[in-house]
């Protein structure tokens, strides 16, 4: 498992142009939100939290075809399937690496971006915490759906059919970010954690099943 993680990180280091792409896409998308509402501070601070979730979602969507599709096309996936390590573990590692390389840098830049949206520092810390706990499900769902669409290369299809699966995360995430409770174990937060855990646990199994269906 450590070997796979090391391999994946090496791959990202040597040919990870999509990480930079996702990072700049996130910033540009936030800039678009800011530019369209900067005349009114009230609207600006109101839209900030939603804008972060949407930009994060979009930049995750754009990088999804790098997780499994490239391996499938180059034939690496065949070797991973017949390797000693269970395919579920491999998929789990791949997704974790995707989350660390694509989503985590965005979370690190989020506080600075949100400062320009006139949002109080307490709310910024809360939002980043919620993003940290909620965003893994975006990567894991993405892996699941990209395994389902292996037979078709178009990233348009992948994006279109992934979006419905992001509804629960988006709904809960935005709802939690804008909720006023300070208790981090309130019901809506618990729902968000449950959603994350549910997808993290289930996604590798469903993905591996989908890959096997595609190969049969």
């Amino acid at each position: 498992m450590l070997n796979i993680l090391r391999l994946e990180f090496l791959l990202i280091l040597r040919s990870g142009s999509h990480v930079v792409l996702a990072f700049s896409f996130f910033l540009f998308f936030m800039l678009l939100f800011a530019l369209s509402t900067f005349r009114d501070n009230f609207i600006l601070s109101g839209i900030g939290l939603t804008a972060v979730w949407l930009s994060l979602l979009m930049s995750t969507l754009l990088t999804l075809n790098k997780v499994i599709h490239e391996d499938f096309e180059s034939g690496v996936l065949d070797y991973l399937l017949i390797a000693d390590i269970p395919i579920e573990v491999t998929l789990f590692c791949k997704t974790i690496v995707h989350w660390i390389s694509v989503v985590l840098p965005l979370l690190l830049i989020t506080p600075i971006v949100l400062l320009t949206f006139q949002i109080s520092s307490y709310n910024i810390i809360k939002t980043v915490l919620i993003l940290l706990l909620g965003s893994p499900s975006l990567s894991f769902l993405g892996t699941m759906i990209s395994c389902l669409t292996l037979s078709n290369r178009s990233s348009f299809l992948l994006t279109t059919i992934t979006i419905p699966f992001y509804f629960p995360t988006l709904l809960l995430g935005v709802f939690c970010s804008s909720s006023t409770t300070t208790n981090l174990f309130a019901f809506e937060y618990l729902l968000l954690y449950a959603n994350t855990l549910f997808t993290v646990v289930l996604s590798p199994y469903i993905s591996s099943y989908a890959i096997k269906l595609n190969y049969s």
Partner: peptide, 14 residues
Amino acid sequence: SIKSLETAASVTSL
């Protein structure tokens, strides 16, 4: 989007 009927059936079922 999937050409092979059997694969399409399985994948869409999932």
